[in-house]
Amino acid sequence: MWRFILKRLIMLIPVLFGVALIVYFIMDLTPGDPAVIIAGEDATPEQREAIREELGLNDPFIVRYGRYMFNLFRGDMGRSMLSKVDVFPTYFQKLPASLALAFGSIIVALLLSIPLGVLSATHQNTWVDTLCTIIGMLGMSMPNFWLGMMLIIAFSNKLGWFPSGGFDGLKSLILPSITEGVFLLALIMRNTRSSMLDVIRQDYIVTAKAKGVNRRGIIWHHAFRNALIPIITVAGMNFAYVLCGPVLTETVFSWPGVGRLVYDGITKTDTQLVTGCLILSCMFVSVINLVVDIIYAFVDPRIKAQYSK
């Protein structure tokens, strides 16, 4: 198991390398000039030139990338070209809000999606199933930034129950969590349903029935654990996504998360900031994926056996 984890962590290194290269390259293509933004519209060409020289923007791409990677290996992520603050603390300053939103939305999603998905599967082709299918469909089809605005209109502008934006305590977390959570809810519910339907048809479920296991035991003891793998996969993937990229929800709720930070960085051609943040995000995503893989091993002994090979 430890070898498996180590192997995965080592495999992560070239991916991060690649992420850095691709992001750095795309950012380099971006036409904006940080020097203009830093110095302001009124600055003289000489002032701009000085800033460019100071930031090393005049060097060819390969030199700049090489320098960046060299610093990265020494543990220096560089600093934002605009704010002059190191990327690392900037990122971690935004992380709590992102984490809160990620946990909030996954809780909203899991609380409802799993019971509904199981219910839907065990009552296949009944009205319960139809209702769940419709909920799932709507949830999947709703643009969440629009849902966010609808929630603001209803619960904050009309009813005044929750703030319409900002990250300030539990109350402010509820609407964004629902906004992000609804899609997840729909997705996990649909996955739970199809996964359960798949498992319920397996021979070992008939074996369990033939043993005299009651309905509840069949569903929760025998079937559910076998159905968990695809559910965990989807949940993990989307947790990672919410952690590093829900730019739209963050925009709607003026949420001070990582997504907005990167977005602002992109629009202002802050290459260092964007590359650094995306590398960190990728690391988080990979760690979450690894955790998901480790959870697999606890759910399914066959997977555990594979890891030790």
């Binding site: 991916v15 829900p246 730019v247 995306l278 995000s281």
Partner: peptide
């Protein structure tokens, strides 16, 4: 597949934003 992994590990909306910004 390794290149795919790299693209896959970037949040797609951020990637799209970056590409639009780069291309105009």
């Amino acid at each position: 597949m390794r290149i795919t992994d790299i693209f896959y590990s970037l949040p797609s909306i951020l990637l799209a934003i970056a590409v639009v910004s780069a291309l105009g």
